[in-house]
Design a protein around this nucleic acid. Structure first.
Length: 571
DNA sequence: GCCGTTTTCGGCCCGACTGTTTTCAGTCG
């Protein structure tokens, strides 16, 4: 079982415990276990196979109780505890929690007192005025519930970072340009560069908070205001994303940005450490008794707690706090370290720009090289090249290279890994290229074993340099195909095969957790954009963000090398 | 339910906004 599936079951347990008003700390224990499992590079299932319950209990946040639940889930595929809990509270009742403004207390009263069992029943009850039977629920509250349900139905939960970031940048610009705003930054999961984003958080410093709230809540992108105050406002945007604005004082900016950036688990641990040192951390600063000792900058905050500055992308409570205390945090990759892009398409196949246009756009970004890697003949939907077309393309690249001093276009191919693990072009043809990127575009439904063998066979071909989008997922559209990622990464360490981190916002494949695993196994990563137009080259920032979340440094990433070193490595 | 550089028992992060109230509980992050 995948970690994500296991985490989901434990998360459902924690939600029902919350509805049942069980011990708050017990609930928090389950939540912590969920978050730790989601951020774990190793498969919990494998850990259990190797070391049983005892090994499970070595995972942070998992003790005797939860290890017993996990054991049952891994061996039977389900949790009798969860099924027991569901007898009291069915799944459809739990779904009412998704409505903004409806929390655990209200859900229970809706269910127990009024017999409302689902979001749909809640909507019709709200419209009929049935909800007024409940204490503390009157006109305004009912109106909010109806709006909340309408919003829930429109919203497809999480948004890709590729959608959220441009929106957040628009809001940030609109606010930041006002004369009464001295500072404004994006916080939340967006600043941590998560692949999907729940809502947009913006933090600002203003000499006129009231006026800033007015400006924010009346921006043209806002369709509804859900809260508005001197320090905090919330709105719904036209793309059905929520956006929050927090306004703080200049000397609180560091502690506030730390707090609003999260993650929640990271913040909880930071505050716990503060307590152990006789300090208190809140969004207003670090306090010793009533005396404020830090908070103007994040640096100051971490320093006051005796640790290194922790980059936002690492703040998931997955070991970064301990590393910062030991002062052993990695020196993370920067976007300026990237010297080239090794996977992109031209108008020879399904790209929209010519080879020369792609090259000039990349050169403008400061790159030293790119690889043109159009599809091979099997990928017919993308207009894959025949042998003859590929040869013609190679000639054209030679010509363009002569026109671009200080820049090099590598001749490449994104060659299909066929069902039996062989490649779509002959070794003879492939050996004439500078770089071979191999990937899977068909037969996604093969078994885990077959898929793993298929990829390993391709990796063992000495001509293959990079495995592209190794799990094949399309966020929100297609699940990753079944493949034993640990096994293929172990094999990659032996064959010196590079793995791609594909920067397309709906791929981000390898993901952050896999990147960290690859690094542990000594597998090099190439961060590529898989561009189909010159604009797509800018997706690099999403790949770099994901790489940073995966603890990658400059030396873990192959396309930080200069051209000569890169060519040596590829050989 | 987890955890331990005081601890194997007794702690467990912190604060703002809303609606419906006259002082606060619920919700959210």
């Amino acid at each position: 079982m995948e970690n994500a599936a296991l985490a989901k079951i434990l998360s459902q347990i924690s939600i029902i415990l919350e509805l049942k008003e069980d011990n708050l700390f017990k609930i928090r224990s389950y939540q912590k276990a969920v978050s730790n499992i989601e951020n774990l590079a190793e498969s919990v299932s494998e850990i259990y196979k190797k070391g049983g319950r005892k090994a499970l209990e070595e995972i942070d946040g998992i003790g005797s109780g939860i290890s017993e639940r996990i054991e049952e889930i891994l061996t039977t595929g389900k949790s009798s505890y969860l099924e027991e809990l569901h007898k009291d509270i069915p799944e459809s009742v739990v779904e009412m929690l998704g409505v903004q403004g409806v929390g655990p207390k209200l859900v229970i009263r809706l269910y127990k007192d009024l017999g409302i069992k689902s979001v749909d029943e809640l909507l019709s009850a709200a419209k009929k005025g049935v909800l007024e039977k409940l204490d503390g629920v009157r006109e305004k509250r009912i109106e909010n519930i109806i709006k909340g349900i309408e919003n829930l139905k429109k919203m497809d939960k999480k948004h890709l970072i590729g959608e959220a970031l441009p929106y957040a940048e628009i809001l940030l610009r609109s606010i930041g340009e006002k004369p009464f705003v001295s500072k404004a930054i994006i916080c939340g999961s967006l600043r941590r560069m998560k692949e999907t984003i729940g809502d947009i958080d913006i933090l600002a410093v203003s000499s006129d908070p009231k006026r800033l709230s007015d400006v924010f809540t009346s921006l043209p992108q806002v369709i509804r205001v859900t809260a508005k105050g001197e320090t905090k406002s919330s709105v719904v945007l036209e793309n059905n994303m929520n956006a929050d604005l927090r306004i703080v004082k200049e000397d609180e900016f560091g502690s506030a940005s730390h707090y609003f950036t999260g993650s929640k688990q990271h913040n909880i641990k930071i505050r716990k450490i503060a307590i152990s040192k006789g300090l208190k951390v809140s969004e207003y600063g670090v306090f010793k008794g009533s005396k404020r000792i830090a908070g103007k900058t994040e640096d100051e905050l971490f320093n006051a707690l005796g640790m290194q500055y922790i980059p936002p992308e690492l703040r998931e409570d997955s070991g970064e706090i301990e590393a910062a205390q030991r002062k052993t945090l990695p020196n993370l990759l920067e976007i300026t370290d990237i010297k080239g892009d090794l996977h992109m398409h031209s108008d020879y196949t399904d790209g929209t720009a010519s080879i020369e246009e792609m090259a000039r756009a990349a050169k403008k970004l400061g790159y030293k090289y790119i690889a043109i890697t159009d599809h091979s003949k099997s990928t017919k939907v993308a207009g894959g090249l025949t042998e003859k077309e590929l040869l013609k393309q190679m000639d054209e690249i030679d010509g363009i290279n002569k026109k671009l001093p200080g820049f090099k276009i590598l001749k490449g191919s994104e060659v299909d890994i066929l069902k039996d693990g062989s490649l779509d072009f002959s070794d003879g043809l492939l050996s004439r290229l500078d770089i071979i990127v191999a990937s899977i575009h068909s037969g996604f439904s093969a078994s885990k074993d077959e898929m793993t063998k298929r990829i390993i066979k391709a990796m063992r071909n000495k001509l293959v340099n990079i495995i592209a989008h190794p799990t094949g997922r399309l966020l929100g559209k297609r699940l990753p195909y079944e493949v034993d990622i640990e096994k293929i990464l172990s094999e990659a360490a032996k064959t010196h095969t590079i793995f791609e981190l594909n920067s397309y916002p709906d791929r981000l494949d390898l993901n952050d957790v896999h990147c960290r695993l690859a690094k542990e196994k000594g597998v090099k990563i190439s961060i590529n954009t898989d561009s189909h137009s010159t604009n797509n080259l800018l997706y690099m920032k999403f790949g770099v963000g994901t790489a940073r979340r995966g603890w990658l440094t400059k030396k873990d990433v192959i396309n930080t090398l200069g051209l000569k070193d890169l060519l040596d490595y590829l050989k």
